[in-house]
Simulated assay, not measured.
Amino acid sequence: MNAFWERHAALREFLLFNLLSNCATLVNLLATFVGTHVLFRAFRDRPFSFLVFQYRNIREDLGLAGFLSFLFATALAQTVNFSVQRKLVFRASGDAGKAALRFAGLALFLTLISAALPAYTLPRFGILGSAVLNIVLQVAISFPAMKFWIMPEGTREKKAV
């Protein structure tokens, strides 16, 4: 099995990248719950609107509490995602600060896309189709960005699989 993964290192990275991204998803779900029900509960009755972030229907999106929970959960989940991807998938040993800044830029870009995209995709593809399209787009952008820009080959430890 090790010989297979050595011959197909890019496939191994891609599969591991997707599998371990679920760590960030779990953190995001937990942090969203804690944010909306504990940390920012007092702001649930205040509508919020800024650029593509529209949290105006407090019964459905929890207003300012929903937005603050979204920010909290996203920041926490992406911190976990960066650490997991850096150490376990790409095995990067290069400048962590430089990689973290690049990753933060990528995370901000992806967050804006995922916040804005449903307004355009929901009417045409429905909830499930919109979610799938969003996930595919996120992976299509994030995997190559992390592999070639944030944690390129020259910044990786050489380890046997």
Rank of each mutant, 00 (worst) to 15 (best):
F50K: 00
G66M: 00
G94C: 10
K98P: 02
P123D: 07
F90E: 04
V139F: 13
A31M: 08
S114P: 03
A100G: 06
E13P: 04
A10F: 03
Q138C: 13
S93Y: 05
L15I: 14
L110P: 00
M151S: 10
F53R: 03
E157Y: 09
Q138V: 15
P152G: 12
F143C: 00
L137E: 01
V139W: 14
E153I: 03
F17D: 03
F40S: 09
L112V: 08
E153Y: 01
G94E: 07
G63L: 00
S69N: 07
L88M: 09
M146T: 07
V27I: 14
I141G: 06
F33C: 02
A160Y: 13
A31L: 04
A92F: 02
K159P: 12
F4P: 02
F109R: 04
G129N: 13
F67I: 03
F43R: 12
A10W: 11
E60T: 06
W149K: 11
A107C: 06
T79G: 14
F103L: 11
E13S: 11
N28I: 02
A42L: 12
L20D: 00
V38L: 15
F82E: 02
L122A: 12
F109H: 04
T121M: 07
L39W: 04
F40H: 09
D61Y: 10
L101A: 13
N81D: 09
I127Y: 15
G126F: 02
Q78Y: 14
F103G: 06
N81M: 07
S49G: 06
F43I: 06
T121Q: 05
Q85W: 11
M1Q: 13
L76T: 09
C23F: 08
E157Q: 14
N22D: 11
G129H: 12
V34S: 10
N22M: 13
S130F: 08
L76Y: 02
S130W: 03
V136S: 01
S130M: 06
G105L: 07
L51N: 05
R56M: 10
L110A: 02
L88S: 03
R44N: 05
Q54M: 05
E60I: 09
L101F: 14
F82T: 08
V89M: 11
E153K: 09
L133V: 13
R44H: 07
N134Y: 10
M1A: 15
A65T: 00
L16R: 06
P47S: 04
M1P: 12
L39K: 01
V52W: 10
Q138I: 15
S69T: 01
N134G: 05
Q78H: 15
F43G: 04
K158F: 10
P47R: 02
D61S: 14
F90I: 08
A140F: 07
A160M: 15
T79Y: 08
H37G: 03
P118W: 01
L122Q: 14
K147E: 13
P47I: 03
V139M: 10
F48L: 02
A73Q: 09
K147V: 07
A115Q: 13
Q138R: 15
F67Q: 06
A140S: 13
M151P: 03
S142I: 01
F50P: 01
N57A: 10
